[in-house]
Amino acid sequence: MKKIILITTCSLLFGSINQQELIKDIEKSLMAPCCWSGTVNDHGHSELEQEIQSMVEAGQTKDQIMNHYVRIYGERILAIPVAQGFNIMAWLAPIIIAIIGITFLVLYLKSSTSKSLELDSISTGDESIPYNEQIEKELKELD
């Protein structure tokens, strides 16, 4: 009997922790439909917070709740756009720019370093100087 009570208490406790996490997660994923400047979690929106809580307690999943609000407010309610169709460009464009930037840099460095080797076949670089001596050399230049 004690075991049953313990298990029931634990499941209730963990159930409520999971529910709280789910509520937080949903509140962080939805924009507050008043001034649209922050999520329900950050900005606060008592009406939506209560609705979300009761829907979670009624056993609805995150997807069901999110879809419910998309039906009411449109896609604008989602803090992160749905990653499909043109929206994928939101993630893709910075990645493309990063690839282009790094490619340009690598090509520039390749051409620059090869030309530099042609110009200066006997390296006078600092590679042969130990690091400590390099620092001392730089500091002496300042004195």
């Binding site: 803090a79 992160i80 756009p81």
Partner: peptide, 24 residues
């Protein structure tokens, strides 16, 4: 820059208002 302007760009392309919020 892209994330800030994406709602405007998306609305122009798709005609649907979207939000790019802090989580993005």
């Amino acid at each position: 820059f892209w994330g800030t302007l994406f709602p405007v760009i998306s609305e122009a392309v798709r005609g649907t208002k979207i939000t790019v919020g802090a989580p993005f």
